[in-house]
Amino acid sequence: MKYQWIAFQTLLRKEISRIIRIWTQTLLPPLVTQSLYFIIFGKFIGSQVGAINGVTYMSFIVPGLVMMAVINSAYGNVVSSFFGAKFQRSIEEMLVSPMQEWVIVGGYATAGIIRGIVVGALVFLVSCFFTHPTIHQFGIVMLFMILTSAVFSLAALINGIFARNFDEVAIFQNFVLVPLIYLGGVFYSISRLPVFWQNLSKLNPILYMIDGFRYGFFGFSDVSVPFSAGLLIVLTLVLWQINIVLLKKGIGIKS
């Protein structure tokens, strides 16, 4: 167990070094993108939109935009790093070592979570230039940020395992992740949608992430917070187990 723990620390240190080494690709872009969202949606459009549950529109979109950055960063970190290792064949450094599957999954997922949290915190700081966001329950904010990062880090690892080329890395992000994020209530409350669209939105797991996260900021939510947290925990466990099985079988990484 001691050896595995050292291997885990090594992988995590390697991944964090990578995040720092290429900070212009890993930390800077979400700050620029989210700043543009704050300016365009918060200042320009938001000034014409009324308050939602007593919260200004600019403040209302802060949790959604932070969560959007968290999701993209956690996902992007793991899928690019893991597929990059596959592409360069440096993944063999891990495969020939006695590292157990949980170490590989845990190492990549933890690095994804860390990048998600760091980017989330930076975007939150940027939001302070545009509004004065309040935090209703810091524990809930952290819980949802960690669980969401974990879910998307683990999902990204599955993508990285199956991907055979860079197109397959980008396809899920562009055609699944981005639409789900935009339709997950980043810019609106689903309570303002017609019933049909409300029910359809509830099939989108990202809704529960953003909604629970937003509860941590303002103390109100569209769906049950314990249910959202439970869903994220279940998703994390299921995705973790899928990754372990895939690595054990060597799918996508061994012949």
Partner: peptide, 20 residues
């Protein structure tokens, strides 16, 4: 089969870490 963008020392020492 190593990461071309890593330093020589890191490539070797990281491998040692992977072996515990």
């Amino acid at each position: 089969n190593f990461n071309m963008f890593e330093k020589v020392h890191d490539i070797v020492s990281i491998q040692a870490g992977f072996f515990g």
